[in-house]
């Protein structure tokens, strides 16, 4: 138990520190690296909760795909960090005060948190005991039945994101070569191959 507690605090602290570093690091590449660190530690928290599947998805998808993509983008764009930071110090005092006030207020709110005895009764879907059922099976049981609506809605959101990305960035340039399968299939030897009689020794 004590190990779990220690692990929880370790992961949590590293996650928060890494998150702070993401926004405060001077070099955007470092930011992305801290982001990856935060993701890893979140995955650790999931493991502690017994949600190994989510932990693995976290690592594979976020670290493996998203964060790496970020890294590419950041390196390709060559963002001028100094420009972005212009005015940061100028607004820091005021922004800092407001942020601090908000933070303290939220701490007060969180301080009032109690798990009322009835809460567990109201849980829409109680977490199954990990030993009874595997992670993936538990998810599979509900994701296409009880939560099919949410799942599909999320799917459509991703579709929109995809459409958006294409709409905003895709351009058909002059001179780009596209693979047209029908053209390839329909291509016949007569169109492309010219058979020439070459008399020996004379060249073309």
């Amino acid at each position: 138990m004590i190990i779990q507690t220690l692990a929880f605090y370790l992961f949590s602290i590293i996650t928060i520190v890494a998150a702070v570093m993401v926004i405060s690091a001077r070099n955007p590449v470092h930011s992305v690296l801290f982001l990856i660190l935060a993701f890893f530690n979140s995955a650790g928290l999931f493991v502690l909760l017994g949600a190994e599947f989510l932990a693995m998805v976290m690592v594979v998808v976020y670290v493996g795909a998203v964060a790496v993509l970020f890294m590419f983008v950041v390196m390709m764009l060559d963002v001028n960090i100094a420009e972005l930071r212009q005015g940061f110090l100028q607004y820091l005092p005021l922004g800092g005060i407001v942020g601090l006030v908000l933070l303290m207020e939220l701490a007060v709110v969180a301080g009032g948190f109690v798990i009322s005895p009835e809460v567990s009764e109201r849980f829409a879907a109680p977490i199954p005991v990990p030993s009874d059922i595997a992670n993936t099976e538990a998810l599979g049981n509900i994701i296409y039945t009880k939560y099919v609506y949410f799942f599909q809605a999320a799917g459509i959101i991703l579709l929109v994101a995809m459409i958006g990305a294409i709409v905003l960035t895709h351009r058909s340039r002059e001179g780009t070569r596209k693979q047209r399968i029908s053209n390839q299939v329909n291509r016949r030897p007569e169109d492309t191959i010219e058979i020439k009689k070459v008399s020996t020794g004379s060249g073309i």
Partner: peptide, 20 residues
């Protein structure tokens, strides 16, 4: 942009403070 974002934060901070 950051002015706007800051205005929103001010709004939420103000409302929260008011309620607390």
């Amino acid at each position: 942009l950051y002015h706007y974002a800051f205005a929103m934060l001010l709004g939420i901070a103000g409302l929260t403070t008011w309620f607390l």
